[in-house]
Design a protein around this nucleic acid. Structure first.
Lengths: 341, 341
DNA sequence: GCTAACAATGACAGCGCTGTCATCGATGGT
DNA sequence: ACCATCGATGACAGCGCTGTCATTGTTAGC
């Protein structure tokens, strides 16, 4: 029956407000606000008094109230599929660091929780009134896109160069990457190539381009296998087993992601296949481990950090008041030839 | 006055407010609020009208305003060192899912950004007025602890059972884990054990317990090496090289974390050392890959998901109004014997 | 000495929402 | 028929802060 939840327990009475600080510092509330937000407008003498009052009371500003009136929450929300995915780590770190320097706070929202619909998620995110949004993959729901567009919220979509951006795009061409991967294998003279691929949109784009390039060159694609997301090393091992069953004479495997390639490496080793002599292996992503497997993994490197920095730069420009420019920034990629091909 | 056509949503660029919806649905603002937050208080007939008005206008509630007056933001913030760390993935997923079911939103805050001081971070987090906090490691700054205590905010510290919790603790004993790791190696008859350890507080706790147990048993600890955080597979490879330099006759290596163990596996392989015959390897964490390396990695498994669930349960109880009980929940750990020892 | 310009501070309103209490019929027990 | 109860709805105030404009010294310029 008690559907009115009791207010959050308030250990020592009321929480300290701006007015409390003002009273103690013997200034008006607005002056305290200025000390915090625009200190250059306040004399050093007054500011010192105010800061000491803040310290004494342990005052922590209420950004709900501040954001409500100023229409700026100083909050940027980034949607990541899950914290599991190491691909976005660098992006988020650099994004967060750069935003923090401009007094914006980056909070991450996991977008791939079970029972969570995309448009519901977006509404939940928007209800916090963030000043900007960073997406690590494009929105699939039209209504969700609509909402963002309608709100005119600064948005960066990243890790992809899709056709129809909401506003800004920082990423690279997955098709080009897929083709480059194929070309690399062709250059190395592989003849019967297997494709091990994870079932996600972007990987699929790379796969298609890769396959096309291979076929154009007249090289046999001996076998293909798809694995479900989220992918793990396990899928790599199982995947190679499946591929080899389909075509025991495979001389190379191209993987949609390093995690799979790592699994392939392990399975190859378990079967006594020597990489790259018996089997070439190519990954994608250049995760930390890729440079330290045995043999070291050839892969495609994407400048994850740079994506974060460019996203931050764009957002900060927008937040300074610049018009929504339709920036499309291709950070490219780099094929790292190591020991597995 | 009754025949004015419904206003076009948001024609003037103003964002839609509760009042706009109320006007269109011909009810009072508070009724719209109730439809959203306590629908059981509203008749189905009215609710339907209101929901259609919400849909027509694309209204998204402003939680800044709502939170300001109700003193509940329905926001839970979790501090994670960085999204890089896969250890917390499961915890966060389960935590987030459970909180979402109770209409709380989980946002993640990276706590290990450069130039970010702990107490500053805590203040930034608190300024959002979250309803609760989840920490993945204990606060080191006394002032930061103070702030939380003073505010009476529901807090769960996790992944550890430290002596002096702020409120609730969900984790396991790192000392016990370290000792168990040592005992496992002793049981397997290893004689000259190397320790490869990352420089973080918890790993250090495990190392000490591990070392003590080894020494008590009179087993030689041939060599020890520390690696900086954040650790990667690279440190595992380099680490084994260093250990072997110190003591070429090492017959086993205990690692503070699976990532290192994986690197050790690779380096061992590169040097033609057979695992576990020539060298036993033990990891910690049971990351996804651990079960799929070659050979499969023996390690210590922690129920990451359960930590998240227990944390959610505690918070939810607290948010329902329960008194701050000083819960300490030990989720334990499990030594997984696979092929590397 | 007088005005203009500026620096420093304050008063006030109101952001968008919900807690609280009030109101008004409908229902049911006696 | 009468009161108590309950379900459905609304009026109003105010959460804590900042945008805006007003006010008060203070200094520079002539």
């Amino acid at each position: 029956m008690s559907d009115t939840p009791p207010p959050i327990p308030d250990a020592a009475g009321r929480t300290v407000t701006l007015d409390d600080v003002a009273r103690i510092a013997k200034v008006s509330a607005i002056t305290v606000s200025r000390v915090i937000n625009r200190p250059h407008l306040v004399s050093e003498r007054t500011a010192k008094r105010v800061r000491s009052a803040i310290a004494r009371t342990g005052y922590v500003p209420n950004l709900l109230a501040g954001g409500l009136v100023s229409q700026r929450s100083r909050l940027v929300i980034a949607l990541v599929p899950s914290v599991a995915n190491p691909a976005f780590t660098e992006t988020m770190t650099h994004l967060g660091t750069r935003l923090a320097a401009a007094r914006y706070q980056l909070l991450l929202c996991q977008s791939e929780l079970p029972h969570q619909e995309e448009s519901t998620l977006i509404d939940a995110v928007l209800s916090r009134r963030p000043d900007a949004l960073v997406l690590t993959k494009p929105l699939s729901t039209p209504t969700a896109r609509q909402r963002l567009l309608a709100r005119g919220l600064p948005v960066v979509e990243s890790w992809e160069l899709n056709a129809d951006p909401i506003e800004a795009l920082v990423g690279f061409s997955h098709a080009a990457a897929g083709a480059a991967m194929a070309r690399h294998m062709l250059d190395h003279g592989y003849q019967r190539i297997g494709l091990l691929w994870s079932e996600d949109q972007r990987a699929e784009t790379r796969r298609r381009a890769c396959l096309e390039t291979l076929i154009e060159a007249g090289v046999a694609v001996g076998a293909q296998a798809a694995v479900p997301v989220p992918v793990g090393m396990r899928h790599g091992r199982e995947g190679l087993a499946r591929l080899l069953e389909m075509d025991p004479r495979l001389d190379a495997v191209i993987c949609s992601i390093d995690l799979l390639a790592q699994g392939v490496l392990a399975e190859a080793q378990a079967r006594g296949l020597r990489v790259p002599h018996d089997l070439g292996v190519l990954g994608f992503g250049d995760f930390e481990f890729a440079a330290h497997t045995h043999p070291r993994l050839s892969t495609v490197r994407v400048d994850s950090a740079r994506i974060g920095e460019l996203a931050a730069d764009h957002l900060l420009r927008r937040l300074e008041g610049d018009k929504p420019t339709s920036l499309v920034h291709d950070v490219g990629f780099e094929l790292l030839v190591r020991e597995s091909t």
